[in-house]
C-alpha cells in the first residue's frame, strides 16, 4: 500500500534513524515524510531560565539547527522537520490528525523495569490514540 503522508517522531537516537529510513522507503519520496521532535516543557528552575535567557523559542531554534546537522550527517537532507512541546504520546497523535497523516512510523526503546514504569512507552500511547495506522519498529538491541 502506498503512503502519501507519513509522520516520523524522532529523538535523534539510532532507533529514530531506522524509523526515518523505513518511512522514506515506504513513501518512496522524501517529500511525503514529515519528522516531528517533541520537547518536554521548559524547566523553569534551570539556571538558564532563572538567570539566563533560555526560553521555548531559543530551545526550538536549537533543535531546528541540531536537526539540520543531524539529517545532513545521516544523508536525509531536506526532510521536513517540526517541533512541538508537551507530553510526547499525545502531542504526536494530535499532530498526526492535523497533518492528515496516513501512517506513523515510530521506534520503540524497549525499556523494562523501573524506566518502563516511570517513562511508560511513547509508542504505546501513540498506538492507543492515533487515528491512523502505526508501524512500531522494535529496537534490535532492546534492553
Amino acid at each position: 500500500m502506498k503512503r502519501d503522508n507519513i509522520l516520523v517522531p524522532v529523538d535523534f537516537s539510532e532507533q529514530s534513524l531506522n524509523a526515518i529510513r523505513e518511512a522514506v522507503e515506504l513513501a518512496g519520496d522524501t517529500g511525503k515524510v514529515r519528522l516531528l521532535h517533541v520537547l518536554p516543557p521548559l524547566e523553569s528552575i534551570s539556571p538558564g531560565v532563572v538567570w539566563g535567557d533560555v526560553s521555548d523559542s531559543t530551545r526550538e531554534q536549537h533543535v531546528r539547527d541540531y536537526a539540520v546537522t543531524f539529517l545532513k550527517e545521516n544523508g536525509f537532507e531536506g526532510l521536513q522537520f517540526d517541533v512541538r512541546f508537551g507530553p510526547p504520546g499525545h502531542v504526536i497523535s494530535d499532530y498526526a490528525i492535523d497533518l492528515h497523516a496516513d501512517l506513523i512510523v515510530i521506534s520503540s526503546h524497549g525499556y523494562h523495569g523501573v524506566k518502563r514504569m516511570l517513562l511508560g512507552s511513547v509508542a504505546e500511547v501513540v498506538i492507543r490514540h492515533a487515528h491512523c495506522a502505526v508501524l512500531v519498529l522494535r529496537r534490535t538491541d532492546a534492553e
Binding site: P40, E43, I45, K115
Partner: peptide, 23 residues
C-alpha cells in the same frame, strides 16, 4: 529549595529520563 529541586531533578533525570520528572 528552588536550586536544590533543580539538582534533584537533574539527578532524577539522569536515572529515569526527562519524561518522568513531573513525578
Amino acid at each position: 529549595i528552588i536550586s536544590w529541586s533543580y539538582y534533584g531533578e537533574k539527578a532524577w533525570e539522569s536515572l529515569f529520563g526527562p519524561r518522568s520528572t513531573p513525578l
